[in-house]
Amino acid sequence: MLIDCPWCGPRSVEEFTYRGDGTLKRPALSDRSIDAANAYVYDRENPAGDHMEIWHHGNGCRSHILVKRNTLTHKILSCELLGPYSAGRKK
C-alpha cells in the first residue's frame, strides 16, 4: 500500500505502523465513568468498507495520519495530518 503522508508525500506502507481505529474519542480527563472508558478501550466498529484509521509515520516524519481506507479493496480515499499541525486545528 502507498500512504500519502501529508508532510512527506506518498510513501510505502513499510515506513508506517498501524495505530488502529481513528473514530475513537478518549473521554475527557474529568470523566471518571468506567463504562465510557471501557467503550473507548474495547469497542470497535470494525466495518467491512470505508474505515477511518490512524497510521504513524514511524520511519518518516513521525507524525500521525488519519487515513480513510476501504477494508474490502484497500483503496485509500483520504489522508489527513493529526496533531498540533493538523489542518483541522486552529493554527
Binding site: 474495547y42 469497542d43 470497535r44 466498529e45
Partner: peptide, 19 residues
C-alpha cells in the same frame, strides 16, 4: 472474520474484535 459484519445485521455495532 465476518463476525462484526454479521452481528451488525442484528443491531450489534460494536464488539471487542478487529478483522
Amino acid at each position: 472474520g465476518s463476525t462484526s459484519r454479521v452481528m451488525r445485521l442484528a443491531g450489534i455495532n460494536n464488539l471487542p474484535i478487529e478483522s
